[in-house]
């Protein structure tokens, strides 16, 4: 689903990602682990161009989205991202958080279609072969209502319907992150990108967030997760990438990586992580 070809990322002189080549297949769940500073988050953020690659291509839905000429906003509608710091919109209620993008973008497309139709009608006066009008089978009211209904359904899924009209500042970290996840889901993405989703949470709340991600995984969502939760990675991932110093040092199935790491750095990293337990 996503092909990463010769991805390089530099911040001035500092090289963060070196010539990375990877593929994420549809339905695949890829976990990325590694020490801090290895470029995990940068790599993830390059996938939806939150960071602009210095060179290389990211092929998604048949297009190289790293190319500046591509309209990245359209592509991002099909990629959901969940941040370490949740990043819920503070000035909007929970339900508004979830419905903001679907409503705004739905209305925008509706308006664009209307304008195009207007021009087609005008130009049809001059044409012999009349061009057909674009089909518009919805209204602004319906767009809003559908977005809201979908949002309530998602909230019901995580059991937080009564929080719909509350502001994010009143919620706990676990609640915020779960709402952030369904905010991303509201756009019906093809792939979900998780940037250390539980690293900023109290230990008690890590579980509820991981449960939700596990559910999504079971439903077949393609996902790329940067995480420090080794047990979770082992359980959920189809493939684990170990990154170090800007390259993918080792990759394989969870069993291969966790039980039989071949690379020296992987071994060192896992030893340190397991020591901490």
């Amino acid at each position: 689903m996503i092909d990463i070809i010769n991805l390089n990322k530099k911040y001035g002189e500092l090289v963060v990602l070196k010539n990375i080549n990877e593929t994420v297949a549809e339905g695949e769940k890829v976990a990325i682990i590694g020490p801090s500073g290895s470029g995990k988050s940068t790599f993830l953020r390059c996938l939806n161009c939150m960071e602009d690659p210095t060179s290389g291509s990211i092929i998604f839905e048949g297009e190289d989205i790293a190319d500046m000429r591509v309209d990245i906003n359209l592509r991002r509608e099909h990629m959901g991202m969940v941040f370490q710091q949740f990043n819920l919109f503070n000035n909007k209620t929970v339900i508004d958080n979830i419905t903001l993008a679907p409503t705004h973008l739905g209305l925008k497309k509706f308006r664009q279609k209307k304008i195009k139709n207007f021009f087609i009608i005008c130009l049809n006066l001059f044409r012999k072969e009349k061009k057909n009008l674009l089909e518009i089978n919805t209204t602004p009211k319906r767009i809003r209502a559908e977005a809201k209904a979908n949002a309530m359904k998602l909230l019901a899924r995580i059991g937080l319907e009564e929080k719909a009209d509350k502001y994010p500042s009143t919620l706990s970290g676990g609640q915020k992150q779960r709402i952030a996840i369904i905010r991303a889901l509201a756009m019906n993405p093809k792939v979900m990108l998780f940037d250390e989703p539980t690293s900023a949470l109290d230990p008690e709340m890590v579980g509820e967030v991981l449960d939700l991600i596990r559910e999504l995984a079971k439903e077949g969502m393609t996902m790329v997760i940067v995480t420090h939760e080794m047990n979770f990675a082992r359980e959920v991932a189809d493939r684990v990438l170990f990154m170090s110093d800007g390259v993918i040092a080792e990759e394989g199935t969870p069993n291969e990586i966790f039980d039989n790491p071949k690379n020296l750095r992987t071994q060192q990293f896992l030893k340190n992580v397991l020591k901490a337990r």
Binding site: N48, Q85, L105
Partner: peptide, 15 residues
């Protein structure tokens, strides 16, 4: 304003 706010807005497809 926390730059994450803008990031989250763009990640979800807003211009």
């Amino acid at each position: 304003v926390d730059p994450g706010q803008l990031e989250a807005g763009r990640a979800v497809g807003l211009s």
